[in-house]
């Protein structure tokens, strides 16, 4: 695990959530978790390539996803339609984009893929044998779990 790569992804997620949502964002206890990851309902997945290789997941309940999409659009989103999904993908893109900005400006060379959004009950994500670091972020819309697995290529 590249722990030096992990922290910017967590701190950037927290910063961006603070900027787009009202209220304070609190980070919960960090833990290590083996793959696979069980989704709470809605998961945005972003692949990382370049000097480090891995993936970042932002996992949340359907209710939290809709509350975030509603707040970011300043209009009610009652179902996970095109706009709500697009909003959550854009949020994931902003959170990972800021992280690689921090890392690349420190001299690293990383790229992120466009986010993939998965929605559904009882979804398990097991694309990796990488050790995963999990940080829950508590927001006014509910909990967003940041899940980072990263290794040197």
């Amino acid at each position: 695990m590249r722990y030096d790569f992990v922290n910017p992804f967590v701190s950037s997620a927290r910063e961006i959530l603070e900027e787009v949502l009202s209220g304070r964002i609190d980070a919960g206890k960090i833990r290590l978790s083996p793959a696979p990851v069980s989704s709470r309902g809605v998961t945005a997945i972003v692949g990382v390539t370049g000097e480090g290789e891995g993936r970042v997941l932002f996992d949340m309940s359907r209710e939290t996803a809709l509350a975030i999409a509603t707040e970011m659009n300043q209009e009610s989103q009652n179902d996970l339609g095109v706009l709500a999904k697009d909003t959550l993908s854009e949020l994931a893109s902003m959170m990972t984009g800021r992280a690689i900005t921090v890392l690349n400006d420190r001299g690293h060379n990383l790229r992120v893929s466009p986010p993939t959004l998965i929605a559904g009950d009882n979804v398990t994500i097991s694309n990796s044998e990488l050790e995963t670091l999990v940080v829950p972020l508590s927001t006014s819309c509910g909990e967003v779990i940041v899940n980072v697995a990263m290794e040197t290529r």
């Binding site: 854009e90 893109s93 984009g97 800021r98 690689i100 900005t101 690349n104 400006d105």
Partner: peptide, 9 residues
């Protein structure tokens, strides 16, 4: 306008 704001970009 981009989510990625590193110097090279």
């Amino acid at each position: 306008v981009s989510s990625n704001g590193y110097q090279e970009m």
